[in-house]
Structure formats: C-alpha cells, structure tokens
C-alpha cells in the first residue's frame, strides 16, 4: 500500500506538496511587471482590462475548432472554403482567428498530419485555446520532427506503414489546424453531435476523433 504510512512532506492524499516558488523573478518577469505597471500608470490600460483579457484567453477552448471541423464534415462547400482560406472560413462562422493566417491540413485515407513548433510554441490559440504543456516541451518539439511515428504511437495513434505522415513545423506566420477524417459510423449524427467527437489532440494530429457511441 503506497499511502499507508505518513511522511511529513506528503499531503493527506499521499502526494507531495508543491514547493513554494521562493525564487527571484527572472529578467523577463521583471520586465513584464515594469511594462504593465507603466502602461497602467500612464492610463494606456487598466488592471481590470488586463485581467479581463487574461480571462478571455483562458476561456478559449478547443470547442471552436471542433465546431469548424464538424461544419467541414457536413458541408462540402464550407470545407472547400476552409481548405482554400482557413482564416476567412473561421470568420464566416463568427470565430476570429487572429492576425496570423490559419492553414488547414486534411487527414485522408493515405495521409496523417501532425503539427509541431520546434522553435517555440506556435499554436492556433484563438481556435483551440491555450496549448497543452507537452506541446511546449522540448521532447515533443525535438522528437516529432525526427520520429513522428514513435511519438504518435505514444499518444495511442498507431499508423500502418502505407499511410504517409506529414509533419508541419509551424516556423513563421501560419497557424495549423488538422482536419481529422470523419469517423466511421457517424453518418446519422448532426453537426453538434459530430463536434463532440472532435478532440483537441485530433486537431493537433496527435489523436483521432472519438468513435461515435
């Protein structure tokens, strides 16, 4: 039994306490605080506006991306527009994709796409919300361009050898959304039910949509 004896550094649930972050601020943390305080002091913005903007960023979720994918599954004309100009098609649905251009890559019977940003953590935040921590990890960034099949297998996506893997390194001004293949057996579902099958990872390429119940 792992939890039947007591250690002072463990919480009642048996897990270690997170250490206090009693470390000095980094250069950039200090710079951010100084800049923020100056902008508030000079009346350019207010603390409330900043908090509101952080709230708006945190509130974004992969649901918007899932709605776009479901629309593309049911509406071939929309899908054509999405593939031609991802940003414009998203605006059409009322989603603001931001200044960076959205490029949609489609998974088909013979192609699987996966997105990575080796240089930093470029991610279509406006459509998918904040990126998962692993997306920003050195291991994901370094390994996905070198051994994508092994990485995908660790995510539970085992690809047969006759499927081509296309890795997209998001190095500059594009942001990428994977359009996953519509799952088998989803013929009778409406758009909302289809959107519920679309996972965040399936739009990064590290997962597949949920099979319909």
């Amino acid at each position: 039994m792992p939890h039947d004896h007591h250690h002072e550094h463990l919480s009642p649930s048996g897990h270690p306490y997170r250490p206090d972050d009693d470390v000095p601020l980094t250069y950039w943390q200090t710079m951010e605080i100084a800049m923020r305080e100056l902008l508030i002091e000079k009346g350019v913005t207010t603390a409330a506006e900043i908090a509101q903007q952080i709230g708006a960023m945190d509130a974004r979720s992969p649901a918007d991306g899932a709605a776009v994918v479901a629309r593309a599954w049911v509406d071939p004309d929309f899908k054509a527009r999405l593939m031609a100009d991802g940003s414009a098609a998203c605006r059409e649905m009322g989603f603001e994709p931001g200044a960076l251009r959205l490029l949609v890559v489609e998974n088909t019977a013979d192609t699987h796409n996966v997105v990575v940003c080796t240089l930093c953590s470029c991610y279509p935040r406006n459509l998918l919300g904040l990126p998962p921590d692993w997306y920003k990890s050195r291991a994901y960034r370094a390994r996905t361009v070198k051994e994508p099949r092994k990485v995908l297998a660790e995510f539970g996506v085992e690809l047969p050898d006759d499927i081509t893997v296309r890795v997209h390194d998001s190095t500059a001004d594009m942001r990428y959304l994977v359009l996953p293949a519509r799952p088998a057996g989803s013929d009778g579902l409406d758009e909302a039910a289809l959107a519920a099958l679309v996972t965040r990872d399936s739009m990064i390429g590290t997962g597949l949509p949920r099979p319909p119940e």
Binding site: T164, V165, R166, V167, H168, M174
Partner: peptide
Amino acid sequence: ERPEDTLDAE
C-alpha cells in the same frame, strides 16, 4: 523513421 514521410516548414 520512414524515408517517404515529409516535413513542411515555412
């Protein structure tokens, strides 16, 4: 890993 797989970058 598989020579024909591809990588796209900007």
